[in-house]
């Protein structure tokens, strides 16, 4: 659409216009390259407004803005579990003025499994990790099993269990473990934590995957295993599936820029993000939402990214029909 030319204009005025536009581009982009950021930065959140990620991002954007000395504006682009916003950011100019606050899970799982996406594993530069979603397998305390080993043993005795999943990635991990152990688990799809919780509390499913909502229920819910590379902040005594099966879900919430962003801009953003994380309001909201503060720098994110992708590829290969 941008390539449309103005047919109605004379050659001369078109030429003049083009020159003028060039001059404008030069005038705005030169100082920007010299001194990032020269204009407000857009922080895209690829989820619906009002959710926990958007709320975090709103407060974080204020702190980040103070550190950068420029306004940071949050813009939501929800759809397809984050894929719509991610597509948008992957196509934005790599000048550091469009960055995204996003779950690592969508950026890695979607390109590996969904057809028709216009971004891939190499579309983004990972500036920093900010926090970690507390994903886990959970159940209620009234069940005849209290940890993953007992659950597997119970399933091994010929008990067929129903597990509440929350779409693609959790379903694949459930199927992966069931296949490894040779047991019969049926993944029941749910529309997120709001549906999973009543199913679990009402006894419709035997255990469930939780994106972190279990933290609200105290001892009414029991963590069977952490789905992350490490253990959960709130239940350090419960092992992770990484320890047991060598696979892990990507739990980090990260800030990314389109690939091709310059090292200078990336370094400046990384420094500002690290400092912004100490903002009292942001610290307060993380505490109230029960998200741990977990800063990972750009280099650290490369390691996390490679591990996670290897893990996901293993799961995809094993669960593909």
């Amino acid at each position: 659409m941008l390539s449309k030319t103005g047919f109605g204009f004379s050659t001369r005025s078109a030429l003049l216009g083009a020159l003028g536009a060039l001059a404008m581009v030069a005038a705005t982009s030169l100082p920007a390259a010299a001194e990032y950021p020269a204009k407000p930065v857009t922080l895209v959140v690829p989820y619906k407004a009002g959710g926990s990620t958007e709320t975090m991002a709103q407060l974080f954007s204020k702190a980040l803005g103070r550190e950068l000395g420029q306004k940071v504006v949050v813009r939501t682009r929800p759809g397809a579990g984050g894929a719509v916003g991610s597509t948008y950011v992957s196509k934005a100019p790599a000048d550091g003025y469009t960055i995204m606050f996003v779950a690592l899970a969508g950026l890695t799982w979607d390109p590996l499994t969904k057809k028709g996406l216009e971004f891939d594993l190499n579309s983004f530069r990972y500036i920093a990790g900010v926090t970690e979603y507390q994903m886990a397998f959970i159940t209620t305390p009234d069940k005849p099993y209290g940890n993953l080993a007992e659950l597997i043993a119970y399933s091994g005795k010929g008990n067929s269990l129903n597990v509440a999943d929350q779409g693609g990635i959790s379903k694949a991990f459930i199927n992966y473990i069931a296949k490894k152990e040779g047991i019969d688990w049926t993944a029941i799809p749910t529309r997120g934590g709001g549906e999973m919780v009543p199913f679990l509390l009402g006894g419709k499913v035997d255990f469930a995957y939780s994106g972190g909502v279990h933290g609200k229920y105290g001892d009414k819910m029991l963590v069977l295993a952490s789905c992350l590379g490490g253990r959960l902040a709130a239940s350090p005594e419960v092992p992770s599936i990484k320890e047991l099966y060598g696979i892990a879900m990507p739990g980090n919430a990260v800030i990314v820029a389109p690939k091709g962003v310059s090292d200078e801009v990336a370094a400046k953003l990384e420094g500002a993000i690290q400092r912004a994380m100490n903002d009292p309001d942001f610290t307060k909201i993380l505490g109230k939402l029960k998200f741990p503060k977990k800063f990972v720098d750009g280099n650290g994110m490369k390691t996390v990214f490679n591990e996670v992708v290897a893990s996901l590829k293993k799961v995809v290969a094993a669960t593909r029909n």
Binding site: G79, A80, G81, A83, V84, T113, K114, G116, G168, K171
Partner: peptide
């Protein structure tokens, strides 16, 4: 259930 596309014409805007 299976996260496969139905009539989306591979348009990411139609995934939901």
């Amino acid at each position: 259930v299976d996260s496969t596309s139905r009539m989306t014409f591979n348009k990411v805007e139609l995934f939901d």
